[in-house]
Design a protein around this nucleic acid. Structure first.
Lengths: 255, 255
DNA sequence: AAATATTGTGTATTATTTACACATTTAATA
DNA sequence: TATTAAATGTGTAAATAATACACAATATTT
């Protein structure tokens, strides 16, 4: 939001390299004269376990980063879309492909990668930890608490923060939270999820009232088991009904 | 949100090209074997005039696009951040550098550029047309109505749509709309702006009540001039007060 | 001086959000 | 089998926010 005045401002009347008129020669010339920029995708994979939001990380083996924790990323292949690259990375690391995945932001600070100029596109992914007990443990792949995280490699700490804030906002206006839960869940589990992600305490009755009033929870008729107290009803989220619901583009101005 | 299963899934146990452990050699090898991907920035520059939302476009001179309209873009230089590239393009094309600018999304479909693989990062910019009567008119730079737009070059129509929807949402929760207005504005102008962007009719009294209740409009003591009727008071937006206002991360779940 | 066009203002109604307490149900325990 | 423990399931009153709606005041033009 704060304006910058780059010193290398191109002449508006003579610059013929603008992308709208870019041809392959121009692109190659530019890349030769100006250096190559790599493109990667980094996946911020969130899970929910033990009433805490977790993120999936590996150990970086760049010397420079001295075994710091790192997001799961890879260079984008020439023949694949960005989304495809993100799904590929997820599949490679977790074995899962039926996951929630959404682009969050591109990060392109000049010095963000020590070895080369690499612009990375951050994707947020939500997976149900119960459904995926990690079997591939390359590079010490592990779940980490989001709130108590030590230093990370690259600018991954910042990327994670941005994605976490994105998630806090997103989960309030889209039903992505259900991707973190089993297909059937109790309202307590759902509330725990929201409380953990948003870091707030919510009133139980009002929370229930709110969700029921949206009319998207379906009573499965089943009950929790293995709880040392009265079991709650299990619900599932009705995606069909959600899809059909008309989206309002007017929420009310407020800032 | 819909899962994909790319056919070129990497082996999780053997793929050593993951970005967390990428070194320059790996990157270059990848680029050599897999081809080069260019990175550009495209600016979606919105303006507000004649009670309509406008967007700044140029004529593409790629033959393939047969003089179709195009966003303002350029390749990202090796030594500049993505934001800097966006500011550079803006400055080059409009001469302005005190503008609102924000990244919206990366677009990386494989076939989106006819000449080469180019991933583009779309930025949204809002400028006050009154303050910038266009003087540089290269490639037929002109303002266009957002609502009645013919076909565009590349995937720019889609990018524009995404940015327009982003704007509709964003303007309701952040005070960026003021960037489209003169420093001093009447409430009628402000309401016209919201009505045009959101494509809704709003109740005048409720609109005023809402904005006054936010406590961010400052009465300048001045009145409109050159209106053929009773002039309205002129206000300015108090950014300082807005900045100091504490942001609530809890808006209320609703979807 | 009259006509025109838009500003500026308040209230009643409805909808939404919030605060709050107790009986019920199951599992565990005595 | 009776008791305890722990969480579920439920409703209402109060406060806040959103909506619908009409008329007098002011500057300009004729």
């Amino acid at each position: 939001m704060s304006p910058k005045t780059p010193s290398d401002q191109a002449s508006a009347t003579t610059d013929n390299a603008l992308a709208s008129q870019t041809n392959i020669k121009t692109i190659l010339k530019q890349l030769e004269s100006d250096g190559i920029i790599g493109i990667s995708v980094d996946c911020v994979i969130f899970g929910f376990d033990d009433n805490e939001l977790k993120v999936l990380l590996i150990k970086s083996d760049l010397e420079k980063f001295d075994n710091k924790w790192s997001l799961l990323g890879d260079l984008v292949h020439n023949h694949e879309d960005l989304d495809q690259a993100a799904y590929r990375i997820l599949k490679a690391r977790t074995g899962m492909d039926d996951v929630y995945l959404e682009q969050v932001k591109a990060f392109g600070q000049v010095g963000r990668h020590p070895a080369a100029r690499v612009v990375t596109i951050a994707y947020c992914s939500l997976i149900n930890i119960e459904h995926h007990k990690l079997k591939i443990l390359d590079n010490e792949l592990h779940w980490h608490r989001v709130t108590t995280l030590s230093e990370m490699a690259f600018d991954h700490r910042m990327i994670l923060n941005v994605c976490y804030e994105w998630l806090q906002k997103r989960i309030q206006e889209h039903p992505l939270g259900f991707s973190l839960l089993p297909k059937q869940f109790s309202l307590r589990e759902l509330q725990n999820l929201y409380e953990a992600i948003l870091d707030v305490k919510l009133d139980r009755r009002n929370f229930r009232k709110k969700f029921f009033s949206m009319g998207l929870l379906e009573d499965t008729g089943e009950l929790e088991s293995d709880v040392p107290h009265r079991p709650g009803k299990l619900y599932k989220f009705n995606y069909d009904k959600y899809q059909k619901k008309e989206r309002k583009k007017w929420f009310g101005i407020d800032f």
